[in-house]
Amino acid sequence: MDDVLREIGMIARALDSISNIEFKEHNLTKGQYLYLVRIYEYPGIIQEKLAEMIKVDRTTAARSIKKLETEGFIEKKDDHHNKKIKKLFPTEKGREVYPFLRREGDHSEKAALTGFSEQEREEVFQFVQRIRKNIEGDWEAVKKGKKREY
């Protein structure tokens, strides 16, 4: 069996490690930049949707969001219709650091796909997207307490 998931895991860990080192100067660590980028791109997103988008549990998301709020990168605002809902928005500080995060992401993608034709890039994207969609069902089930059958 090909170890596709091992390869994907190594890529993800290497990129995460690079980002944690490069983003240290901005006081962003342990994947917090992922949250900030999504909040910037989807201003007003709620915590639950953000956790689902990034594929983490609510507790992990809450911890990272709290740190981003404490560091002044994001702010929570009440929903106009439902006061129990808190929407997430980047602050000025968060908006200022976004272009750096975007450049890093673009650079990493360019480096990762060096030597690939445009068609190969599209194929890789489609394959990885299919892998993610295949895994999402198990992720949702396990998150709700179900056991996978092997």
Rank of each mutant, 00 (worst) to 15 (best):
M1D: 08
M1Q: 10
L5I: 10
E7M: 13
I8N: 07
M10I: 09
A12H: 02
R13A: 03
L15Y: 13
L15Q: 14
S17T: 07
S17K: 10
I18D: 00
S19I: 12
N20K: 13
I21F: 10
E22W: 08
E22V: 11
E22Y: 02
F23N: 14
N27V: 06
N27H: 13
N27F: 13
N27A: 13
L28C: 07
L28T: 12
L28N: 05
L28H: 03
T29L: 15
K30H: 15
G31Q: 12
Q32I: 14
Q32T: 14
Y33T: 14
L36A: 10
L36D: 09
R38I: 12
R38Q: 12
Y40F: 09
Y40D: 05
E41F: 04
Y42I: 01
P43L: 02
G44N: 03
G44A: 09
I45F: 00
I45V: 00
I46K: 09
I46M: 05
Q47Y: 04
Q47I: 06
E48F: 09
E48M: 09
K49W: 03
E52A: 08
I54T: 11
I54V: 14
D57M: 07
D57Q: 10
D57S: 00
D57K: 12
R58E: 15
T60F: 14
A61M: 13
A62T: 14
S64L: 11
I65W: 15
K66G: 03
K67P: 11
T70H: 15
G72A: 14
F73V: 11
F73Y: 15
I74S: 10
I74Y: 15
E75A: 12
K76A: 08
K76I: 07
K77E: 01
D78E: 05
D79C: 05
D79E: 03
H81R: 10
K84A: 04
I85C: 01
L88M: 02
T91G: 06
T91Q: 06
E96A: 11
Y98L: 03
Y98N: 04
P99E: 05
F100N: 07
L101G: 01
R102A: 10
R102K: 13
R102D: 12
R103T: 05
E104A: 10
D106V: 14
S108H: 05
E109R: 02
K110V: 08
A112L: 11
A112H: 00
G115Y: 02
G115D: 06
F116R: 00
S117H: 01
S117A: 00
Q119C: 01
Q119E: 06
E120N: 09
E120P: 02
R121Y: 01
R121I: 01
E122K: 03
E123S: 02
F127G: 01
R132N: 08
N134D: 06
N134P: 01
N134S: 06
N134V: 08
I135K: 05
G137K: 07
G137M: 06
D138T: 09
W139Y: 11
W139K: 03
W139T: 04
A141G: 00
A141T: 02
K144F: 04
K144P: 05
K146Q: 02
K147F: 05
E149L: 08
Y150W: 07
